[in-house]
Simulated scan of single mutants.
Amino acid sequence: MVAYSEAMWAEAKKKCRLNNEDIALAKRLGLNPRSLIKNIPSRSEPWKAPVKDWLHEIDEKRQKKAAQKQERKERPQKSSS
């Protein structure tokens, strides 16, 4: 795994208008500063969400998926006799 410098994270934080919590979330999600910068919507991409919203959307989807997986795990298994 490549370690990204704090300078790169600081640049992504500034360009994407993120706060420290958003940067921590991006790191937890396994994203890198370059991917954040690449996902800044341009004027020709009005459908793209701002990076901050995009990050929280990814996190929400992952949490929902993990909850469903946990739910399936806890559900009693039917025996196929």
Rank of each mutant, 00 (worst) to 15 (best):
M1S: 15
V2P: 11
V2H: 10
A3G: 08
A3T: 11
Y4N: 02
Y4D: 05
A7D: 12
A7I: 08
M8Y: 09
M8N: 11
A10H: 06
E11D: 09
E11T: 12
E11K: 11
K14G: 07
K14Y: 13
K15S: 11
C16V: 01
R17F: 04
R17G: 09
R17K: 11
R17W: 04
L18R: 00
N19E: 08
N20S: 10
N20W: 05
E21G: 05
E21P: 04
D22S: 04
I23F: 02
I23D: 02
A24P: 03
A26T: 02
K27R: 08
G30W: 03
L31Y: 07
N32F: 06
R34E: 11
S35G: 10
L36N: 02
I37G: 01
I40V: 03
P41Q: 00
P41A: 00
P41T: 04
P41G: 02
S42P: 01
S42Q: 10
S42Y: 05
R43S: 14
S44A: 11
S44F: 08
E45K: 13
P46L: 11
W47Q: 10
W47H: 13
W47M: 12
K48Q: 15
K48V: 13
A49P: 05
P50F: 02
K52H: 12
K52A: 13
D53K: 15
D53F: 15
D53V: 15
L55R: 07
H56S: 10
E57Y: 07
I58T: 05
D59Y: 11
D59T: 04
D59S: 06
E60I: 14
K61A: 14
K61F: 12
K61V: 13
Q63T: 07
K64Q: 12
K64N: 10
K64H: 07
A66V: 02
A67P: 03
Q68N: 14
Q68R: 12
Q70T: 11
Q70F: 09
E71Y: 15
E71K: 13
R72C: 03
R72P: 00
K73Q: 13
E74M: 14
R75T: 11
R75M: 09
R75Q: 09
K78L: 04
S81P: 07
S81T: 03
